[in-house]
Design a protein around this nucleic acid. Structure first.
Lengths: 215, 215
DNA sequence: GCGTAATTACACAGGTCTGTGTAACTAAAA
DNA sequence: TTTTAGTTACACAGACCTGTGTAATTACGC
């Protein structure tokens, strides 16, 4: 008996993976869509990468558009709640970004990329809808933390923080420079301090000084 | 004398435009590439939009890649020098952004979009090279203005400002919300003030206050 | 063994894309 | 007029794309 690479059957009792076929397809689509681009990857490529027939792929997803939507929905993960102080959580966001930038397989924000790629031709508009929901969820996450910190205008500051996040992502996408995350972190520190948030670790005695203007 | 590139020669007697065929192609490619996406637009579509044959297009550009490169190079425009005070110029950047966001035909940063669309399959890597050069030129523009203002670390602050620019662009791309530019402007104001820059118009008495933390 | 359900191989329709080849046409320059 | 250069119409190659149809195969539960 061959039982090949996992085990057998429709729901294969695979020792290591323990994945549904649908999960395997989605996982592979996620990798290729994100790394190479949605338009650049055809369903044949995905099926070939897994080693299945194109027909099997279409037995699990009715169309490529459905696969794209599933891909984006799968990328929509909420940050898990943390017991660390809110200010630390906020700054840790940028540390996490820096780590992801340093990774070889970082290719920007999948939602922004999808909107840029698919453009206004988004068939059922689900792509843009998902992208907007994701961006808003990030903003809300910041806002709630800022509310806990008691800042005067959490809505406005949360928006400014997501600008720094998305800005550093866009910059890193074209420049491949993880330092963009550090720059964003520094800017976020200034904005937080300006809003009255007390930060314990003054890890950079930057700015607030001013050279004399020549003239 | 060869009387430049429009005056006469093999061009058709077009009364109003006075454009080279090459310019017309590039102009149309620019519009379609930017609005619909590079991968979404074929050379046939561009030729049809102008009303010329595909053959003519290929007589002026050896390949679609060359046309893409020309499109991006054409988008690479330096901001013209201004005699306004540096701080005003910096903040005016965000006002200009807000105006562009409000326009119906704004679809994000063409360079970021191109990198996102073409991905790592960028044939001769010219796309990413151009994109990097553009982003850097923007940063340098900010940096030089900040140097004139005498801030302590113009390099770092310039980077933070471009993060706000690109962040607001990315956010507007998915959310279609020109308010992102205002949020970026407010954040830029805080960063400038924190760096010791004197701003004359305090157009928003925001932040710097802090509600009592519950607990 | 038998039934059931997933999967496979494979062909194919119909569309799009980039890029080329060619002969005829147009209009200005010489 | 003759030459020359740009343009046009049109066919076509070769590739890729999404999605379907079908009959054979596999491997399970019973």
């Amino acid at each position: 008996m061959l039982s090949s690479d996992n085990d057998h059957g429709p729901r294969m009792a695979s020792p290591p993976p323990k994945q549904t076929m649908k999960e395997r397809i989605l996982e592979t689509a996620d990798k290729l869509f994100y790394l190479q681009g949605i338009r650049a990857i055809g369903v044949d490529t995905i099926a070939a990468e897994i080693g299945i027939s194109k027909r099997t792929l279409y037995n699990h997803f009715p169309s490529k558009d459905a696969l794209i939507a599933a891909y984006l929905k799968g990328r929509f993960v909420q940050p898990r709640p943390s017991d660390k102080p809110p200010a630390e959580q906020i700054l840790a966001t940028f540390d996490s970004l820096e780590r992801r930038f340093a990774a070889k397989d970082f290719r920007g924000c999948p939602f922004v990329n999808a909107v840029a790629e698919l453009g206004p031709d988004d068939g059922d508009h689900s792509v843009k809808t998902i992208a907007i929901a994701f961006k808003e969820s990030r903003r809300i996450w910041f806002r709630d933390l800022l509310q806990q910190l008691g800042v005067a205008d959490p809505e406005a500051l949360a928006t400014q923080l997501v600008l720094l996040v998305d800005g550093s992502i866009a910059q890193d996408l074209v420049r491949d420079d993880p330092a963009m995350a550090r720059a964003a972190r520094e800017a976020a520190r200034v904005l937080l301090i300006n809003a009255g948030v007390e930060l314990d670790k003054p890890d950079s005695p930057q700015a607030a000084t001013r050279k004399k203007r020549p003239g």
